[in-house]
Structure formats: structure tokens, C-alpha cells
């Protein structure tokens, strides 16, 4: 069972690597942020699988925190510079 979890985690890492193409090619900033959010969710899944494979409860806490980090980055982007431009007009 453990090797199966590790196999699925490795597969998810592969999808993350494939997602890098979108970050490289993404025409708009939002595409890059989307790919980053996909990495966040895939990272949470990988962490949960590793936690189940090695019975490490600390990894589950890491997955919990990881899920929040992607939100902070996108919120900073959305609430950042382009928002202030609107008020200046």
C-alpha cells in the first residue's frame, strides 16, 4: 500500500512538472498564477499521500499550511498594484 501511495505521489509530481510549461508559456500573469495554484493543490495531495505512506502526522500539518499559501500569493496579486491604479483615476 505504501509503495502505491508513493507511486501516485510521483505521478502527481510529474503533472506538476508538466504544469511548468504553462508557467513558461502563459501569456498573462493570471495564467502563471493559475499554474501556481495548481502546484499548491497538487503539493497538498502529494504531502497527504506521503503522510499516509510514512504515517507522519507532521506532514499532514504541512499540507494544511500549504493549502493556505497559494491563496495568500493570489490575494496579494489581486489586491496589489492594479487595484491601486483604479483608485488613482
Amino acid at each position: 500500500m505504501q509503495t502505491f501511495y508513493l507511486g501516485v505521489a510521483a505521478f502527481l509530481l510529474l503533472t506538476m512538472v508538466v504544469g511548468l510549461i504553462r508557467i513558461f508559456r502563459g501569456p498573462r500573469q493570471e495564467d502563471r498564477l493559475m499554474a501556481m495554484q495548481l502546484f499548491g493543490t497538487t503539493g497538498v495531495a502529494v504531502l497527504l499521500l506521503l503522510a499516509a505512506a510514512f504515517d507522519a502526522s507532521s506532514m499532514r500539518n504541512a499540507a494544511l499550511i500549504f493549502a493556505v499559501l497559494a491563496v495568500l500569493a493570489v490575494a496579494a496579486y489581486a489586491r496589489g498594484p492594479n487595484r491601486r491604479e483604479k483608485e488613482i483615476k
Binding site: 498564477l33 495554484q37 497538498v44 497559494a70 493570489v74 490575494a75 489581486a78
Partner: peptide
């Protein structure tokens, strides 16, 4: 705990979807 992580990820991705859509 695993279900809690999933619910948090759900809330995180919906808010992200909204923020990105709005900025686009």
C-alpha cells in the same frame, strides 16, 4: 484532519478562482 485539509483546499481554490477572474 485529512478532510479538514480538503475543505480548506476547497475554500482556498474558490477564493483564488474569484480573485483571478475579477483581476482578469
Amino acid at each position: 484532519k485529512v478532510i479538514l485539509v480538503w475543505l480548506l483546499a476547497l475554500a482556498a481554490s474558490t477564493s483564488i478562482c474569484f480573485l483571478l477572474g475579477q483581476s482578469m
